[in-house]
Amino acid sequence: MQNPEENPWAITSQQNIYDNPWINVTEYQVINPSGNPGIYGKVHFKNRAIGVVTLDADMNTYLVGQYRFPIDEYSWELPEGGGPLGIEPIEGAKRELLEETGLIAHEWTEIQRMHLSNSVSDELCFLFLARNLEQHEAEPEETEQLQVRKLPFKDVYEMVCNGQITDSMTVAAVLRVQLMILEGKI
């Protein structure tokens, strides 16, 4: 019997289906774990996903609102975006925070690493807590039409709990920070 933690999939061929500066889609012909032929599609992300929970001295945080094209809905979420693979995730987090909110943080903690949708993609996410904040001018990208809201963290936690916030990175990061608060780590 094969070790259950070893790869049970065999690739017989692969074809590049789509490629742009952000993603690559590959279709694989495979022999699946039951030994039968099959097909699998994979979305490869060319950036890391980065998200930042901010906490000021009064336990307020910042949310960014924007219309999300893929889901055809307006979304309130943490400052987040893509960090190039060639730079440290913390540098991408600093850039995203300044770009979207105008904030510079002088205290950073990595709080979580996770895969966002490991059934179809390899997108890896890094979540950070940013504290000791200083306000500067935001520098949004030309594709971003953003609103920024400063709210008590407890209100954002409630928004996650009642389903007003559905962005997976925001949900995971807010729940992680709430746990850190309950454990006395913040």
Rank of each mutant, 00 (worst) to 15 (best):
residue 121 S to A: 14
residue 102 G to M: 02
residue 109 T to V: 03
residue 69 F to A: 05
residue 103 L to Q: 01
residue 146 L to Q: 07
residue 22 W to C: 10
residue 85 L to Q: 11
residue 105 A to N: 02
residue 132 N to A: 02
residue 36 N to D: 15
residue 134 E to L: 08
residue 185 K to N: 02
residue 167 D to P: 01
residue 5 E to P: 00
residue 92 G to N: 06
residue 147 Q to N: 11
residue 44 H to E: 09
residue 164 Q to R: 14
residue 139 E to M: 14
residue 130 A to L: 06
residue 36 N to E: 15
residue 142 E to A: 12
residue 165 I to E: 07
residue 106 H to D: 05
residue 57 A to M: 15
residue 56 D to C: 12
residue 65 G to L: 14
residue 113 R to Y: 01
residue 58 D to N: 14
residue 12 T to P: 07
residue 107 E to R: 12
residue 7 N to E: 12
residue 130 A to R: 06
residue 140 P to N: 06
residue 177 V to F: 11
residue 63 L to Y: 10
residue 184 G to A: 09
residue 115 H to N: 08
residue 79 P to R: 08
residue 152 P to T: 03
residue 72 D to T: 00
residue 147 Q to H: 11
residue 126 F to E: 00
residue 97 L to Y: 13
residue 159 M to H: 06
residue 44 H to G: 00
residue 163 G to N: 11
residue 72 D to K: 03
residue 76 W to K: 12
residue 168 S to T: 12
residue 174 V to T: 08
residue 11 I to V: 15
residue 25 V to C: 02
residue 129 L to C: 08
residue 13 S to T: 10
residue 37 P to W: 06
residue 34 S to A: 11
residue 38 G to H: 03
residue 31 I to Q: 05
residue 149 R to Y: 09
residue 145 Q to F: 15
residue 99 E to L: 10
residue 78 L to S: 06
residue 93 A to V: 04
residue 146 L to I: 11
residue 94 K to M: 05
residue 1 M to I: 15
residue 15 Q to N: 06
residue 143 T to Y: 11
residue 9 W to V: 14
residue 123 E to N: 15
residue 24 N to Y: 02
residue 95 R to Y: 13
residue 133 L to E: 01
residue 69 F to N: 04
residue 33 P to H: 03
residue 83 G to E: 04
residue 60 N to F: 13
residue 149 R to A: 13
residue 161 C to V: 02
residue 153 F to Q: 09
residue 149 R to Q: 07
residue 122 D to G: 03
residue 148 V to E: 01
residue 52 V to I: 15
residue 74 Y to Q: 07
